[in-house]
Amino acid sequence: MIAHIFEYSAPTDLKEALGQLASGGKPLAGGMSLIPIMKLRLAAPEHVVDLGRIVALNYIREEAGTLHAGAMTTHYQIESSPLVRSRCPLLAEAASHIGDVQVRNMGTIGGSAAHADPAADYPASLMALEVQFRLASSSGERTVSVEDFFVDTFATALQPGEIITEVIIPVEDPSAGVSYQKMVQPASGYAIVGVAARITKSGGKVTKARVGVTGLGPKAFRAKAAEKLLEGTEGTAADIAKAAAAVSEGVESNTDLHASANYRTQMARVYAGRALSVAVSRAT
């Protein structure tokens, strides 16, 4: 319950923050993952750099066909943003599944992505949405695709001293159908599996399918085999079943007290089927 002693700073300016991070500071975003593990003494950063006062990291805006969300935008802000709900409903839906009211009030999209918990809700949608992350460090900025960003369990493309500053999300085709379906671990509320689906149809055929999966493997991933199987089909129940069955292809499933690897694999298929069915039915 009591963390180790640490130094604390709360810069209001991004540059200043990046400078402090460059000299070994640990970034604190919403703190929903970091603070609990600090309290259990599983983490003991010497210097915590609180990003919570950098106003310039908290925004949602639309620019030329993309939504831009500052890294410090909270799950609640995403969940309740009329802009996100209309222009990228999948992200709002995913945000509404995270944790609980209090966690959504504090937790941030940047913090969640940077933590790269293999069972977090956001990454499935971020994968399906093919977002990009703008990263910054004291030595400059760069943009990486979501696929390059999530590297492994709790491991991302972030270099020491580097943080996410922005998530860039393509505005959804208004005719697309989306859905995030999650099997909830009863104690923690984390996803046993979570599947985010985006479907675009044209002339009665699925022209584009995007499927992001969390909870199943060491990191969130795109189920490309499933996507391929669905694209070009009419999206019938049989088509969906076939695609859903392929959702776990090439992934070594996680196992824990709440779900064995085999069960998780099967549930990924079931929830992929559900997410795809809803998404297909919502696509116009």
């Binding site: 259990l40 003494r41 599983l42 293999p118 069972a119 492994d152 369990t153 709790f154 491991a155 671990q185 923690s188 984390y190 060491p218 070594e252 996680n254 196992t255 824990d256 007290l257 709440h258």
Partner: peptide, 20 residues
């Protein structure tokens, strides 16, 4: 210890990652 009590859901995944 603490790792066992609070890290249950992650033990398998992280062990695999460490070995990898």
């Amino acid at each position: 210890g603490t790792m066992a009590a609070v890290g249950q859901r992650l033990l398998d995944t992280t062990s695999k990652m460490m070995i990898k």
